[in-house]
Simulated assay, not measured.
Amino acid sequence: MLHDVLLFTVLVGLGSTIALDIWVTLLEKVIGFPATNWGMVGRWLAGLGRGQLVLDGANASSPSGAEKALGWAFHYGIGFAYALLIPLVFGPGVIAQPSVPPFVVIGLIASTVAGLVILFPGMGGGFFASRLPNQGVTILYLIVAHGVFAAAEYGTARLVPALL
Rank of each mutant, 00 (worst) to 15 (best):
L2R: 03
H3Q: 13
D4T: 12
V5S: 06
L6S: 07
L6G: 12
F8V: 04
T9K: 00
V10M: 07
L14M: 11
G15K: 07
G15R: 06
A19H: 09
I22A: 13
W23A: 13
V24T: 15
L27A: 05
G32W: 12
G32N: 12
F33N: 05
A35H: 06
A35W: 04
T36D: 02
N37Q: 14
G39T: 13
M40F: 11
V41K: 09
G42S: 12
W44M: 15
L45I: 15
L45E: 11
A46W: 10
G47Y: 12
G49W: 13
G49M: 11
R50C: 06
G51E: 10
Q52T: 14
Q52G: 03
L53K: 08
L55A: 08
D56F: 06
D56G: 13
D56L: 04
G57P: 01
N59D: 15
N59F: 02
N59T: 03
A60Y: 01
S61V: 06
S62I: 06
G65H: 10
G65V: 08
E67S: 07
E67M: 08
A69H: 05
L70N: 04
G71M: 12
W72D: 09
A73R: 03
F74N: 13
F74S: 12
H75S: 10
Y76D: 04
I78H: 03
A81M: 13
A81G: 09
L84D: 00
P87A: 01
L88A: 02
V89S: 01
V89I: 15
F90Y: 13
P92Y: 10
V94E: 00
I95D: 00
S99D: 08
S99A: 13
V100P: 01
V100S: 01
V100A: 08
P101Q: 05
P102N: 05
V104K: 01
V105K: 01
V105E: 01
G107W: 00
G107L: 00
I109Y: 03
A110L: 15
A110C: 12
S111V: 10
V113H: 08
A114D: 03
A114P: 03
G115Y: 10
L116H: 10
L116P: 10
L116G: 09
L119R: 02
F120D: 03
M123K: 04
G125N: 09
G125A: 12
A129E: 03
A129M: 11
S130E: 05
T138R: 05
L140P: 02
Y141V: 10
L142P: 00
I143P: 06
V144I: 15
A145I: 11
A145H: 06
H146W: 07
H146K: 12
G147L: 08
V148K: 02
A151N: 04
A151P: 06
A151E: 04
E153M: 15
Y154T: 05
L159D: 02
L159Y: 06
V160S: 02
A162V: 07
L163F: 10
L164A: 14
